[in-house]
């Protein structure tokens, strides 16, 4: 029983971070219909940013998101304006390859700067944990889960209650109609890519204290992000949140009851099943 509970808790905590990655991807897809294969690499850039801030300025990773979020937003907006924007309406395979190319550039630039050494960010609390009813909970993971939840709520509020947020949702639902309504669609795309990147970067910052950093780490998270967003329904933020937690738990529970070697297979099979039997995902389509 403890084993099950333990794996559920770890799964949910990790799932929170996954959700943040998935939400970023889903916003970008929703607004621009571009599958961003560089999503994991953007997350990796966020991790290095956190690493620099921590090692050279001594800023705690959880505090540093105040800096990481705006910087990553600008980075994403810049990528969108300079590259992705030119591909609006181009063949989907070319869009995919463009983002793959951008991902390659990001990871290899980082490798030139930082070498491909694994960087470990050791904070005083990196291996702290506390006990609840015999179940140990990692303190940094718990903190990052709370921050994730706060950011997600803030994002809901932004998308539902503000004018800009509603404009983004309108663009996601029907680009042409939104344009006819006088929404500046180009600006919304830049915003969406910026927000998506900021979220990926934040996720990177939040897992830094309990994880490690190397230039090629992006690929792992790109694949996870796809699974999460499809599971939740491409373009659905609630779906991505749910998808993140489901994937986190699925990984964690299957590692215990099947084997850690097969846990990723479980995730991909789950993914295919959803594609086949509920292709719109758990939360339907394009409803943000």
């Amino acid at each position: 029983m403890t084993v099950l509970l333990q794996s559920l808790i770890s799964g949910i905590l990790i799932g929170g971070v996954y959700a943040l990655i998935g939400i970023g991807l889903t916003i970008i897809f929703g607004v621009m219909r571009v599958i961003n294969f560089a999503h994991g690499d953007i997350l990796m850039v966020g991790m290095y940013m956190t690493y620099i801030l921590f090692t050279s300025l001594g800023i705690d990773p959880f505090v540093s998101i105040v800096i990481t979020i705006p910087l990553m937003f600008l980075f994403g907006a810049f990528l969108q304006k300079l590259f992705i924007n030119r591909m609006q309406g181009a063949l989907p395979q070319n869009q995919i390859l463009l983002t793959i190319g951008l991902g390659l550039i990001m990871s290899n630039t980082m490798m030139l700067i930082f070498t491909s050494d694994y960087k470990i960010l050791s904070t005083s609390y990196s291996s702290e944990s506390f006990n609840v009813a015999g179940i140990s909970i990692s303190s940094p993971l718990a903190i990052s889960f709370l921050i994730t939840a706060a950011i997600t709520l803030l994002l809901y509020w932004f998308l539902l209650k503000t004018d800009t947020g509603q404009a983004i949702r309108a663009t996601a639902q029907d680009r042409e109609a939104a344009q006819l309504m006088g929404i500046n669609v180009r600006w919304m795309s830049i915003l969406a890519f910026g927000i998506g990147s900021a979220l990926a970067g934040t996720a990177g910052a939040l897992i830094s204290p309990t994880y490690y950093i190397f230039p090629q780490i992006g690929g792992i998270f790109t694949l996870k992000a796809f699974v999460i967003t499809v599971l939740g329904g491409m373009g659905s933020i609630v779906g991505a949140t749910l998808g993140g937690v489901i994937i986190g738990v699925a990984e964690s529970v299957s590692a215990v009851y099947i084997s850690s070697g097969w846990k990723d297979v479980v995730v991909f099979v789950l993914f295919l099943l959803v594609l086949l039997f509920k292709p719109a995902g758990l939360m339907g389509k394009s409803r943000m």
């Binding site: 403890t2 333990q6 990790i14 792992i220 529970v253």
Partner: peptide
């Protein structure tokens, strides 16, 4: 007898299983 792939952020459940 547990193998894992590099870059999994969470080994807790596997370790819990071993602890048992």
């Amino acid at each position: 007898d547990e193998s894992y792939s590099k870059g999994s952020p969470d080994y807790r459940s596997t370790l819990t299983k071993i602890k048992a």
